[in-house]
Amino acid sequence: MSERLAVRKTYKLFIGGAFPRSESGRSYVVTDAKGRFIANASQASRKDARDAVVAARKAFAGWSGRTAYNRGQILYRVAEMLEGRRDQFTTELRQTGLTKPQANAEVDAAIDRWVWYAGWADKISAVAGAANPVSGPFFNFSTPEPTGVVAVIAPDSPLLGLVSVVAPAIVSGNTTVVVASEPAPLPAITLAEVLATSDLPAGVINVLTGHRAEITPWLASHMDVNAIDLTGAPTGHVHDLEEKAAENLKRVLRPQDADWTAEPGTARMTAFLETKTVWHPVGV
């Protein structure tokens, strides 16, 4: 019997709940830590970025309109599905140069991180909001609301780093366009496959793979993007991206040295929240 032919996977983009190829038709080679070919990944163009923003905008009203409790449940469901893909994630992480125990530990940490953020869905408003004492017969409440469409430039930590920047953005009701790590994009697309089979509404997370220096300026300058997380922005481009983001006063989260294994705190969630304050007369 002849040897069975390998069934190689085509890694595509994730936009609006579907897996399209790049509109440009381009792809780039992804290699493992030793430089060997692993797969071809789609090389997204500015038009893919534009389509992803449209999908994220479309999903925003529905996602932010759900109850915090329901968002939390959906994120838990995603964590359950992540657990089922453990082997695939481990394999993909080992290709990036991690040993088996390291890869296992990173998958554990990523799933735990996701669950941790899922728990915040119905708690963040209690922590970031307030009942303010005012000098008058009024109830005065400040409540956090999602900022809108957030462009997330993911760091090169391909799974734990990715989860650590995406989960805090969506848990409060934002929708996202994620630019995956350029050298190690495969876990991001595998995560997208998990999302597609969980109950997360289409368009809440959109994943682009490709050259970050090419895609990110279009997201930073896009007038319909409300915030940008520059964590994985290519070095030397950050200043330019911040300048572009200033045009429509995007909220900007600057890159900082992050230890992804450390306790994350609430900073990444509160970075993409707006505060709404309501006055209500007492006794009415």
Partner: peptide, 9 residues
């Protein structure tokens, strides 16, 4: 303008 616009405008 060279940048993508949005429905808000």
């Amino acid at each position: 303008t060279g940048v993508y616009s949005g429905p808000d405008y």
